[in-house]
Computed example of a mutant assay.
Amino acid sequence: MFELIRYVLAKAVVMILKIMNFKAYLKMLRIRNWLGYFLIATLGYAIFTKLDASISETIFFYVLIFLYLGFSFSINNCFDIREDLFKKKKSNPVAMGEIKQNESIIFSLLLALLGIFLSLSHGLNVFYFFSVLIFLSFSYSSPPLRLKSKPFFDLISHGLFFGSLLFLFPSIFFSKNIELLHALIVVSIFYFSLILELRNHIEDYESDKKAGIRTAVYVLGLNASKKVTYLLSLLFPFSLLPIFYTINKHIIFSLFLVITAIFYLAFYSKKSYRILDIYSNISYFLIILGVLL
């Protein structure tokens, strides 16, 4: 039965893309914006499986990640029309009039349903967890909840569905136990996701304000939000410190201290969030090395 449903859904997606504007639907996925979230999922994959998963399971896992990220960005495009018009954001084909809103919603839901049915074939635990991810992502972007327009719920929900839970998904998919180290990484990723969301809201402040979107940054005020984000960024290394202490590898810990010192020197002088991004990527890569070595 489920095989038939998956087949029908897959055929429906193919037919829709053939009939309608393929390039516009490809733009709906916003693949260029996936990198950070793809890396979070890959961080979880590397740490939980220790790169020892079968090729077939790995491919299946990343198919679900593809469908999840595609749905998340696509459904966001469906309901960000007004603010994206203010921003003149060409990456949203719905706002640009390349796709009708009802068609974009159907396309997004097809991605979600295909992912949900595929997840069911990998067991109930994967099905339940993946469904929660889809629900949170949907609730963040779409009415009636639209958590992205509810101050502080926007930060919390984003920290979960595009942060901590995305990292934990491989533990469910590959049936791995969650240990202290994993819990510490969850806290760190959630923390970093809060910073990313604040940065996004600061960047979108004017367009969100014109569109009447009340985010956490809107409530705090632009200047206060910038100060909070800067302070949280300065404190970010402290969310990593317990992780490296738990890994307990002298060389890895020493490298972490060195790059942290470089981060503080560079970030304090330049005040560029690009430096924070580079620092976080190197730090999480060191965590993978610490687990694998």
Rank of each mutant, 00 (worst) to 15 (best):
S54L: 05
K210S: 12
I40L: 11
E203H: 04
F135A: 15
I202L: 10
L147F: 05
S121A: 13
L180A: 03
S269I: 03
F79H: 14
F135G: 04
L4S: 11
Q101Y: 06
V228N: 05
Y25S: 09
L113V: 04
F244G: 02
L180Q: 03
R214N: 13
V291C: 15
K148D: 11
F152I: 12
P93M: 15
S139N: 13
Y25I: 11
G115I: 10
Y37L: 12
S164C: 08
S91K: 12
I213D: 09
H182D: 11
S91C: 09
A224I: 14
E3D: 04
Y268Q: 06
L9G: 02
K89M: 08
S272D: 12
M28L: 07
S164Y: 02
P151Q: 13
L133R: 14
S149M: 01
I275L: 05
I262Q: 06
L118K: 07
L265I: 12
I40R: 04
L43S: 12
L29Q: 12
I185H: 00
F60K: 14
S137Q: 03
G123M: 13
L257I: 04
V217P: 00
F267H: 06
L51T: 07
H201E: 15
I65V: 13
I65S: 00
F138G: 03
S72M: 08
L222W: 07
F2Q: 08
L109Q: 05
L29Y: 08
F22M: 01
Y37T: 14
R214V: 13
I287N: 00
L234Q: 01
I247P: 00
A24K: 11
L118G: 05
L64M: 09
Y268D: 03
L160N: 06
F162T: 15
N33T: 14
S108E: 03
V219T: 13
I195G: 08
K176G: 06
F174Y: 13
